[in-house]
């Protein structure tokens, strides 16, 4: 590798700006899809708790689809497929207002919601029956028992898995590049093609991704510790 010069990238105003834009877009996509995924996962959990076999099957089908179809294909189905079904006016508006990023957020969010909801479900199932009985015996309604006894424990139990899947979600933001979103990986490829400094560009992107992954995992560890059930196994 000749002339390894990291500073050529970082200090160059144009490349630096591209990198920052890329990082910002990555964070926006990650944050947007995380919020969508979490919200939807909670909705799915509530739907799953309803005593209806159709609800159970529907959520099961949703999870099965999103876990068996590759994420890139889901992204393509949304961006190329579903967008073509939308009314023309909407399509026009979307292509002017950063539609790719929006579709990326929707596709990634819906996909991770399936994983998050499975994590929450496992968290729920790990709670012994005696907890519900004790809450009902004290006079709590079903909702009250859920809210004050069951769900707080379920969420705490689910935190490690949720953190792992959050890291996956963050990494999946790079897939948006395939539909033209100018996130970090895209920016790095642009820099590479303009400056031929492949190694340095890739190194920066790798460090950024690693850094954020570590950040998310540490946040998760801190959360886990802070809200862990004191003394629990």
């Amino acid at each position: 590798m000749k002339n390894f010069d990291l500073m050529a990238i970082l200090l160059n105003a144009e490349f630096g700006a591209m990198l920052l834009k890329g990082v910002r877009m990555t964070l926006q996509i990650a944050a947007g899809s995380w919020l969508l995924a979490m919200t939807l996962a909670l909705v799915l959990l509530i739907v799953r708790l309803m005593p209806s076999r159709i609800a159970e099957r529907a959520v099961g089908a949703y999870v099965s689809y999103h876990r068996n179809v590759p994420t890139l294909v889901q992204l393509m189905l949304w961006y190329f497929g579903i967008s073509s079904l939308l009314p023309d006016a909407l399509q026009g508006w979307l292509s002017e207002h950063n539609g790719e990023a929006l579709f990326a957020i929707v596709a990634l969010g819906l996909c991770q919601a399936a994983y998050f909801s499975e994590d929450l479900r496992s968290g729920l199932r790990s709670i012994p029956d005696g907890q519900t009985e004790a809450a009902r015996a004290l006079g709590h309604s079903y909702l009250s028992a859920m809210r004050y006894v069951i769900l707080p424990q379920a969420v705490r139990n689910a935190v490690p898995a949720l953190v792992n899947h959050s890291v996956s979600l963050f990494k999946n933001s790079s897939l948006a590049m395939a539909i033209g979103v100018a996130e970090l990986t895209h920016a790095v490829k642009e820099i590479e093609s303009q400056s031929f400094r492949t190694f340095e560009a890739y190194l920066v992107a790798t460090l950024v991704y690693l850094g954020f992954s570590l950040l998310i995992m540490s946040a998760g560890a801190w959360l886990s510790k802070r809200y862990s059930i004191a003394g629990a196994r």
């Binding site: 907890q131 006079g139 424990q153």
Partner: peptide
């Protein structure tokens, strides 16, 4: 009605959180 009946379980069932 249940709130007027105190119940103590064999496995305590305290709320760990």
């Amino acid at each position: 009605l249940r709130s007027r009946i105190g119940f103590v379980f064999q496995s305590f069932n305290l709320f760990p959180h």
